[in-house]
Every structure is written in structure tokens, then in C-alpha cells.
Amino acid sequence: MADAQVSRVVVARHGEALYESELLSDAGGWLSPQGRVQAVGLAEQLAGERITRVCTSDMSRAVQTGEIVAARLEVDVVVRKGIREFGVGAAAGTTGVPDPFAGTFAAWVSGDLSARIPGGESGDEVVARWTSVLEEVADEHRDGTALVVSHGGVMSMVLPLLATNLDPGHARDRPIPNCGSAVVERQAGRWVARSWLGDQLAP
């Protein structure tokens, strides 16, 4: 039966990036030389997985990471806007010091998804768009493993809320570095994290 099938997705953060300005914006940035090395390393780590497709956010640092990995694994790349980083909202053009997102992010992790980044998205909106893409990917790749290349902030917030075996604050103690990854599986509508940064997890 369809609901007994397991869909496996590797979710990875993009490689180290450089930006045109140090001021906060929703611009995509691009991979640094180190970021390209990290992307190659990610591809090598995934050689044992049966990756059938790479899906990236529409931000260039994620697209470039995904293209490097896909070329090594000889699979195609698709782009989905819904898995981009949460927007900076009214903080655009500021230095980001002190962290303008700390209060909102803390509220999200504590379960208040109605909290909103000033001028930007609420937690509910971020979770909805990001999860929608992950569900789409899971539905399309029941016969293999898909790689999703996304961003550190949104991954750290959504994955622990989505996976039933993770504490909502899991990423506080195990932040996701550039090209770090988690493996999640969906069966019968339930998401479970199988590994986080290479460490196996209890279901």
C-alpha cells in the first residue's frame, strides 16, 4: 500500500558563501572556493546513497552547491523557491548586530509559530512553504533518495518541528554547518529523523 512506502530525503545546508555586501538582504550570494570544496565533499559523502535527484532553493549559493553535487552523482537538479532561507524583512540593509531574528526564532522554537519577523514571514508561513516542498519531494522519490539543498536557519527551525523524534530545540546543541546534513524519512504521513550530522538517531 502507498502509505506503507518509505520516502528518504537527505537535507543539506549549502556550502560556505560570499556576498556582495555585509548588510542583511535576501540576495543569494555565491559559493566561496571553500564552499566548492565542501560541496565536493558532500557529494563524496553521498556516494553510498541512491540519490535520484537534487532539489535546491532558488538562492544561488544553494543552486551552485546542488549543481556540484549533482554533477558528481550524475543526476539532475530542480529548483524550488519554497525551501529558501526565511526572509530578513525589515532588517534588510542593516548590519544584523544585534541579531534582529533572535527573539522571533526563539519564539518559533518554543512553539509560537504565529511570531513574525518584522516585515517578513511568520513561523507558520515558513513551516508551510518549506514542508510543502519536502512533501512534494517525498512523493516524487519513493524509489530512491532525494537530496534537498537548503539553508541553515530554516533547516534548524523546521526539521526539529517536523521530525517526531526530535526536540524542537535540537539544532541549538547541534547547529548545521555548511554542507552538513540530516536524513529524514516519511512513512504513513510521519516524518522521522534517521541521522543528524552523521549521528544515527533513535526512531
Rank of each mutant, 00 (worst) to 15 (best):
C55E: 12
C55D: 11
S57A: 03
S57D: 07
M59F: 08
S60T: 14
S60I: 03
R61S: 06
A62Y: 12
V63D: 06
Q64K: 03
G66E: 06
I68A: 06
I68Q: 02
V69E: 06
A70I: 11
A70L: 12
A71C: 09
R72Q: 13
V75A: 04
V75I: 03
V77D: 06
V77P: 03
V78N: 07
V78H: 06
V78F: 05
V79N: 03
V79S: 05
R80M: 14
I83M: 15
I83G: 15
I83E: 14
I83W: 15
V88N: 05
A90Q: 08
A91V: 07
A92Y: 09
A92W: 11
A92R: 15
G93T: 02
G93D: 04
T94K: 03
T94Y: 06
T95A: 15
T95I: 02
T95L: 13
G96T: 08
G96P: 05
P98W: 05
P100I: 02
P100H: 04
F101Q: 09
F101E: 13
A102H: 03
G103T: 08
F105Q: 07
F105P: 00
A106S: 07
A107C: 01
W108S: 10
S110H: 07
G111L: 04
D112E: 09
R116Q: 15
R116I: 03
I117H: 07
I117S: 06
G119D: 05
G120Q: 12
G120D: 13
E121R: 10
S122L: 01
G123R: 00
G123Q: 02
E125P: 05
E125S: 09
E125W: 03
V126F: 10
V127A: 04
A128L: 02
W130S: 09
W130T: 10
W130L: 12
T131R: 12
S132Q: 14
V133H: 06
L134W: 12
L134G: 14
E135W: 10
E136V: 00
V137G: 11
A138H: 07
A138R: 08
D139L: 09
H141M: 00
R142K: 14
R142G: 13
D143S: 13
D143G: 12
G144S: 01
L147K: 03
V148E: 00
V149D: 10
S150H: 11
H151W: 05
H151Q: 10
G153C: 00
G153Y: 00
V154E: 12
M155R: 04
M155L: 00
M157L: 15
V158A: 11
V158M: 07
P160D: 09
L162M: 11
L162A: 05
A163L: 02
D167H: 15
P168K: 02
P168E: 04
G169D: 13
G169F: 02
G169T: 04
G169W: 02
A171D: 14
R172L: 15
D173Y: 10
P175Y: 12
P175T: 12
P175I: 07
I176N: 08
P177I: 11
N178H: 14
N178P: 14
G180R: 10
A182Y: 05
V183G: 12
R186G: 14
R186D: 13
